[in-house]
Amino acid sequence: MKKGIGKNLLYTLAAVAFLIAFWAVAWAAVGNELLVPSFSDTVKEFFALWTDGAFWVGFLRTLLRVLVAFVLSFVSAVGLAVISYLLPPFGRFFAPIVAVLRSMPVLAVLLILIVWTSAGVAPVWVAFFSLFPMLYAGTLSALAGVDKDLIEMSRAFKVPVKRRVSGLYLPAVTPYMIRESGAGLGFAVKLVVSAEVLVRTKNSLGGLIQNAQLYTEMPTLFALVVVACVAGFAFDCLGTAIGNAVERRLQ
């Protein structure tokens, strides 16, 4: 197992090294700091952000939007997926609604949302409309993946519903749901920041990116984008690591 983790880490480091090398080549080829800043300047700016109060206010507010969007979509998606699983006719009724939400161009809908709400709230709804169908489908698929033989055994022994939930369903779906949540949070960072950039949300990571672009502060712009990428990647990795650890513990 440890050998596998070491190998994966090696591949990840190699991919990061490749991206940095690609950046260096692009910087040398373009030769214009206003288009592609150097990697070293961006790194300096990245660490400089850590001591900047305005950055922290923007970053934490963006994270708060991400968390609010995630909690809203998680609770509603899991709740409705459980109802769909227990009542298949409801699932069939709800399927076209989910399909519409899934195919909705959320950044275009953002333009409607900004009219109805505010620049601080609209990014939350944009993330919600994208995360909800993803988490709904994930929960349904996790429930459908619960071992049918064990469900039948539980029915034969007339195991009470409460014990079935805690002994059979939760252990079966939890690792999957944790991994799905990590991926969802990572995706939400991308969506919220994109929406914040488009609607110029004040005190947000997207707003800071928009300002950096306006004043052509390219190292700051690149550093802020790196922050968004790292935050999304961290959620994704954390979800996978915790999900896998829980799965190992449960088996």
Binding site: D149, L150, E152, M153, A156, F157, G167, L168, P171, L250, Q251
Partner: peptide
């Protein structure tokens, strides 16, 4: 019920 397979919860 004893099934053809043990059908035990793995956790």
């Amino acid at each position: 019920y004893v099934f053809q397979e043990p059908r035990l919860l793995p956790n």
